[in-house]
Design a binder for these strands. Structure first.
Lengths: 173, 173
DNA sequence: CGGAAGTAATTAGCAAGCTAACTATTTGAT
DNA sequence: ATCAAATAGTTAGCTTGCTAATTACTTCCG
């Protein structure tokens, strides 16, 4: 065995990126590759941590986002609208709503205007759940970013935005 | 209906963050919250785009990472080591290896040193698959980050690192 | 106004992660 | 030397997301 610490879930290093690029005889910029890979890794880790975080309130990330989306609106929305604003498929919304309805955080009614449609309504219980979570939730979000000064946060937002705009490049063609 | 574009999978805005914080009567810094929420949203989107990207080569993100991890080493590793370095559970590795083995990209041997252990070996076919993907893959990673100048990339890496260090804060206690 | 095409929601079935439980082996402490 | 505890790997069962197919209703065109 060597002396390398295996370093669980390790963020990849610049050297690793360089080695890979060299191995394939490519011209890519190791630093650019590193940024992409690190962001992906961070995203995956954050996703999982987020699930754990929301699980404490008996929710999942998706369910929480759906509740917030309802509360941000007038408290009701169709599944299709929810799918669009959450950026998930309608099938996923069906599943999320089913779970939330089972817990009484949300109710479903048939639409009065469109015979095909449904309307998802935030219940008092759902609203209360959001309020109960709020203080802890926002405190944790702040803590996550607490290592950055205010101006650094603005900078980070800008840079992140400029990367996410190009996510399509991953799958384009 | 209002004039708001529903803006599919919309990144949340500073105003939305402000409104939420106000609704719950909290003191949180809207910009800090926005950074956290945007990063989470970006992570989720990137994750899904990444799956689509790797699916073109008949892989998933997890399977790709496992292959790369093998190639970065001496071409073989135990499932436990893989789990540690990939930051996933051993059960997940079992599943990934099963899939990769089915496609002949990887092979499994019993460990000679430890009667409980196994060794996962990258096959020639697995190695070839990585090479075949490399040019396109790295080009896309570069494109993702192409909106940032070299010094901005360094900056971004630094800021991202300082946030990811605190992911634990989301789930701590 | 009648039928084709489009849209809303759900259902079924898939992959990736997880935890918990189980088997087999090794380690280590008495 | 033995037996308990730790470790390696797998399995089973859960959740979240997806796509594709199904059903029901609207819309729109001729």
């Amino acid at each position: 065995m060597s002396h390398e610490d295996v370093n669980p879930g390790a963020a990849p290093t610049l050297d690793q990126a360089r080695k890979q690029i060299a191995r394939y005889g490519l011209e890519a910029d190791p630093q650019a590759v590193l940024v992409a890979v690190r962001l992906m890794a961070a995203g995956a880790r954050l996703d999982r941590a987020s699930e754990v975080h929301f699980a404490r309130s008996g929710l999942s990330t998706g369910r929480y986002r759906l509740l917030v989306d309802l509360e941000d609106g007038d408290g009701e929305k169709s599944p299709s609208q929810l799918a669009k604003s959450l950026g998930v498929s309608r099938a996923t919304v069906t599943g999320l709503v089913a779970g939330l309805e089972r817990e009484g955080l949300v109710a479903r009614r048939a639409s009065t205007e469109d015979g095909r449609g449904a309307v998802v309504v935030l219940t008092a219980r759902g609203s209360r759940r959001l309020h109960d979570m709020a203080a802890d939730h926002f405190a944790r979000l702040e803590a996550l970013v607490g290592g950055l000064a205010a101006d650094e946060r603005g900078l980070f937002l800008d840079l992140l935005e400029r990367i996410t705009q190009r996510i399509g490049a991953l799958t384009a063609e």
